[in-house]
Design a protein around this nucleic acid. Structure first.
Lengths: 339, 339
DNA sequence: TTGTACGCGTTATCAA
DNA sequence: TTGATAACGCGTACAA
C-alpha cells in the first residue's frame, strides 16, 4: 500500500493474480511455465517497475550477487584497468564489484580472506597477482565453494579458473627486438623475488639471449623490485660496468623510468647511448621523454574475460579464451646499436 | 547440528540459555542489558566464533554494511588513492567497499544511481569529483536516506557531507612561487569546462597574478581538458607566442607532462627556457625529467576522513576536519627567470 | 503447470 | 531487563 516503498514479489503476485512462487519462477526463468502466465506476470513486473531485493535473495540463496576483487597492492595502473574491465561486463548485470585488498606477508592473510568469503559470500572472486599465484588461496575458494578466476603471467590453473598473459614469450620478443637492432650487451633489471611475473620475464630474457647465441653474463643482471627507485639503483650498477650495456630490458615501466632517470643524471642520451625497454605500457611510458618502448598486455580484456567466467553459467565460458597475447609497442627509447 | 555450517544467533541463544533477542542486544550494544547476561553471551560468542550474517542483517535493517564509491572516471591516481584511504578505515570494521563508476553525460545517470542506491542500500556513499559537484545527486542521496560525503576542490556542502581541498589557495601559492622566481609572463593551461576544480585553479592563478600586479593576458591562457594530449596542444599554442611565456602553470600533472613533451620536441630546455608547475603530484611528476614541481593534495587523508564521517555515529565526526591543505612540492621543473 | 507452507538469520514490537 | 512472535523479501520442498 505504501507508495514510497519498493514493490515486492508479493505485490507482483497479487496484481498478476498468481502465487509468489510463480513470480519467482518467472524471475528465475524456470522452463516449466505457461507462456501465457509468464507474459502476464512480466507485464505486471514492467508496469510497477519491480526489481527483486538483493538482500533477500542473498539470504535465501546463501550467496550474494557480488564479484570480489582480491588483490595485494600491485601497481595502480593494473588494479584500475582490472576494475574497468570487470565493471564493463558487470555494468549491465545485477552484479556489483566489491574491492577487497589484502596484505600479502601478513600471516593471517588466508584467515582474513576466509572470513571475507564466508561472511560476504560473493558470487565469485578475481585474484590478482602476486597473491593469485598462491595455490592455498585457490584451494580455499574451492573449499568454501566460491567461484574464482586467477590472473597471472603464465597459465597455472585450469582454463576455467585462469586468465593469463604469456610474459615469457612477450619478453623474448622484446629482447629479440633489441638484438635485431644490433645490441649484444643487453642488461636486465629483474622484478622482485617470489613474483611469478618477474620469473617469467627473466626467462624470456634468457630465451632471447639464447636465441641470439649470446652467453649470459651475470653482471648484466640487476635485481629490482618493480619500483622506480629500484630501477635507479639497478641503473647505477649497470652503468658503472665497463663496457657499458648498450641496452637494458626492465621488467616493468616504473623501473624503466628509474633507469631512464639515472641515465639522464649521468648525462647519457637515451636512446643514443642507451636503449631502454619496459613492460606494462602504463601511461607514464608515453609521457616519458623519449617515449618508452614497452610491452603492452591486455589487462582490461583479460579482466572482461575473467568476469565472464565468473558470472557465466559455465557453458562455453569455461572453454573461452584464457591465454592472451601481449604486443611490443615501439616508441623512441630504442635505437640501433652504434658500437 | 551441522558442524560445517556457520553458527547462527540461535546457536548462541541456545548455548547461553537466553533468547535470540538478547543475543541481538549484545551484538548491537544495547544499553539496557544485565552486565552478567552480557558477559555470558559474549563468552559463548567467543567460544563458538559466531559472527552475524550480513545478508540477514541487511534484510532486517533494510540497509547494507557496504560503503559505495560512486565516481566518474577521474584520474586513476586519484581513484586508487581514495580507495586506499577508504579501505584503511574500513579494514577493521564490518564494512566493505563497493565500487560503482557511472557515466557523467549519460542522461540516465541519476536514475542509474538511484537504482543502485535503492537496490544495494549501501550504508553510505562517497562521491568523487566531478559528479560530486552535482547537487541533484546529493539531494537524491538525502531523499533515499543514504549517507553521503562529497569530495571537492572547495567546500560546497556542510562539513558533515564534505571533504574539500582548497585548490584556489594552493594554486595561488604555486603561481606565487613562479612570481617569486622572477617570472611575469606566466601561462595557464586550464582544466575542462564545467569542472569545479578547473575553475578553482584558474581563480587561484588570477589571484596570484593580481597579487603581483600583473595584468591578465588572455593569450597566455590555453584551454585543456586534463589529458596529456590537451597539454601538448596547449603548449603548441603557448610556445608560438612572441614573446614566449617563461613559465606555465598547468591545472594537472598530465597536462604538465604534455607541455613538457612539446617543449622538448621544440628543443627547449626545461626549466632553463621554460618553467613548469603541475597539480596533483601523481607518480609521473617525480618520474619525469626534470622532476615536476607540483601541488600535492592529501587525497588518501581526505578519503579516510570521509570514511569516518560515513560510518561514524555522527558525534564528533560531523565536526571533524573537512577542509584540507595542499602543499607545493618543489622539484626541478622551475628555475629563476632569466629575461 | 501452479500453489502452500516453511526456511534463510537477523531485527523490531510489545507485552511480561 | 527479557522473551515470544512477527516482520524483512525471496527460494524451495512437496503437494495439488
Amino acid at each position: 500500500m505504501k507508495k514510497s516503498a519498493q514493490a515486492t514479489i508479493n505485490d507482483v503476485a497479487r496484481l498478476a493474480g498468481v502465487s509468489k512462487k510463480t513470480v519467482s519462477r518467472v524471475i528465475n526463468r524456470s522452463p516449466l511455465l505457461n507462456e501465457e502466465t509468464r507474459e502476464r506476470v512480466e507485464k505486471v513486473i514492467a508496469e510497477i517497475g519491480y526489481v527483486p531485493n538483493p538482500q533477500a535473495r542473498a539470504l535465501a540463496l546463501r550467496r550474494n550477487f557480488l564479484i570480489g576483487l582480491i588483490h595485494d597492492n600491485p601497481n595502480p595502473h593494473m588494479v584500475l584497468n582490472v576494475q574497468h574491465g570487470l565493471l564493463e561486463v558487470l555494468r549491465d548485470t545485477e552484479f556489483e564489484l566489491i574491492v577487497h585488498p589484502v596484505d600479502r606477508g601478513s600471516p593471517t592473510m588466508l584467515d582474513d580472506i576466509r572470513r571475507f568469503l564466508e561472511r560476504q559470500r560473493p558470487y565469485g572472486v578475481m585474484l590478482l597477482p602476486p597473491i593469485s599465484e598462491n595455490d592455498s588461496l585457490a584451494d580455499l575458494c574451492s573449499e568454501i565453494g566460491t567461484r574464482y578466476v586467477r590472473m597471472g603471467s603464465a597459465p597455472f590453473d585450469e582454463a576455467g579458473h585462469m586468465v593469463a598473459s604469456n610474459d615469457r614469450e612477450a619478453v623474448r620478443g622484446a629482447v629479440g627486438h633489441l638484438v635485431e637492432m644490433g645490441h649484444r650487451r643487453i642488461g636486465l633489471v629483474l622484478g622482485p623475488h617470489g613474483f611469478r611475473s618477474a620469473f617469467e620475464r627473466s626467462q624470456g630474457y634468457e630465451a632471447a639471449m639464447e636465441d641470439a647465441d649470446i652467453p649470459l653474463q651475470r653482471t648484466l643482471i640487476a635485481q629490482g623490485d618493480y619500483t622506480f627507485e629500484s630501477g635507479m639503483r639497478a641503473a647505477e650498477r649497470l652503468l658503472d660496468l665497463s663496457p657499458r650495456p648498450t641496452a637494458v630490458f626492465c621488467s616493468n615501466d616504473a623501473m624503466a623510468a628509474g633507469v631512464l632517470h639515472t641515465a639522464r643524471q649521468r648525462g647519457l642520451d637515451v636512446p643514443r647511448d642507451l636503449s631502454i625497454v619496459g613492460f606494462d605500457d602504463t601511461t607514464i611510458a608515453s609521457y616519458l621523454w623519449p617515449p618508452l618502448t614497452t610491452v603492452r598486455w591486455p589487462i582490461a580484456t583479460m579482466a572482461r574475460a575473467a568476469a565472464l567466467k565468473l558470472i557465466g553459467d559455465g557453458e562455453d565460458e569455461e572453454s573461452a579464451e584464457s591465454l592472451f597475447v601481449s604486443t611490443l609497442i615501439r616508441r623512441a627509447s630504442v635505437a640501433q646499436a652504434t658500437d
